[in-house]
Deep mutational scan, measured.
Amino acid sequence: TTQFTVHSPEQAEQWKEYAKQKGLEVHVQKKNGTWHVTIH
């Protein structure tokens, strides 16, 4: 599991796309103005 924080919805979307291409599961949670992205 990879977990990191991004600071814009655009970055979060890019990671979603990346994960989809790799066939991975991605979870994005918005918290205090940042987005926590978890890739399984």
Rank of each mutant, 00 (worst) to 15 (best):
T1H: 09
Q14D: 06
K30I: 14
Q14E: 10
N32H: 07
K20A: 11
T34D: 08
E17Y: 07
W15M: 05
F4M: 06
A12D: 01
G33N: 10
E17N: 09
S8N: 07
L24K: 04
K31W: 10
K20W: 07
V6R: 00
Q11F: 05
V6I: 04
V26D: 00
P9V: 14
K20C: 03
Y18M: 04
H7W: 09
V37R: 00
P9H: 15
L24V: 06
K31Y: 12
E25T: 12
K22H: 15
K20Y: 09
A19N: 01
Q21G: 09
E25M: 11
W35D: 00
K22R: 12
I39K: 00
E10V: 08
V6W: 02
K16F: 09
E13H: 08
Q21T: 09
V28S: 02
H40P: 03
L24W: 14
E10F: 08
A19V: 03
K30A: 10
I39W: 03
G33L: 04
L24F: 12
Y18D: 02
Q21N: 12
T38A: 04
Y18I: 06
A12H: 02
V37P: 00
F4P: 02
K20Q: 11
T5M: 10
G23R: 04
T38L: 07
N32A: 06
Y18G: 01
E25C: 13
V6C: 05
H27A: 07
G23D: 05
F4D: 02
E10N: 05
Q21L: 13
H36W: 14
V37W: 00
K31R: 10
H7F: 12
E17Q: 11
Q29S: 11
T38E: 05
L24G: 02
S8V: 03
W35N: 01
E13F: 07
Q11D: 11
T38G: 01
T38N: 03
F4E: 02
W35T: 01
H36G: 03
Q11T: 07
Q14T: 07
K16E: 09
V28T: 03
E25S: 11
K30Y: 15
T34Q: 13
E17H: 08
K31T: 11
E13Q: 11
H36D: 05
T34Y: 13
H36Q: 14
Q29M: 11
V37F: 04
K30G: 06
T34I: 15
V6P: 02
V28D: 01
I39S: 00
W35F: 08
T2E: 07
W15L: 10
T2P: 04
E10I: 07
Q29K: 10
W15N: 01
W15E: 02
W15D: 01
L24S: 03
F4K: 03
T5R: 07
T5L: 10
T34G: 11
V28E: 01
K16C: 06
Q21F: 08
V28P: 00
V28R: 00
E10C: 05
P9W: 15
N32M: 05
H36K: 07
H36E: 14
V28I: 14
T2K: 12
T2M: 15
Q3G: 06
I39E: 00
V37M: 03
T5P: 05
I39F: 06
H27P: 00
K16Y: 11
V6Q: 01
K20M: 11
T2L: 15
V37Q: 00
H36C: 13
H7K: 09
E25K: 12
A12L: 13
S8I: 03
K22L: 14
N32P: 02
Q14Y: 15
W35P: 01
T1W: 14
G23E: 04
Q29W: 12
K30F: 15
V26S: 04
T2Y: 15
N32T: 03
T38F: 07
K31A: 09
K20I: 12
Q11N: 05
H7Q: 11
Q3P: 03
H40R: 11
P9S: 14
E10D: 08
T34L: 15
T1V: 14
E13S: 07
W15F: 05
I39R: 00
T5S: 08
N32G: 12
V6A: 05
E17V: 08
E25N: 10
K20T: 10
K22Y: 14
K31F: 13
K31S: 10
G33A: 05
S8Y: 06
H40A: 10
H7R: 07
K22N: 14
A19Q: 01
T2H: 13
F4L: 08
T2N: 07
V26T: 03
W15Y: 05
T34V: 15
V6H: 02
N32V: 03
G23A: 03
T38V: 10
T1K: 11
K20G: 05
G33T: 04
Q14I: 11
H7D: 14
K31P: 01
K16Q: 10
Y18A: 04
K30D: 08
Y18L: 06
S8A: 04
T5Y: 13
I39T: 01
V6L: 05
Q29F: 12
V28H: 01
V37N: 00
H40E: 08
S8T: 14
K30P: 06
Q29D: 09
K16P: 00
T34R: 11
E13T: 06
Q14P: 03
Q11Y: 05
K16W: 08
E25H: 11
T1A: 10
L24N: 03
L24Q: 04
W15H: 02
K22A: 12
T5Q: 10
F4T: 03
Y18P: 00
Q14F: 15
V26F: 11
N32E: 10
I39V: 05
E17T: 08
P9R: 14
Q29E: 15
V26I: 15
K30L: 15
G23P: 04
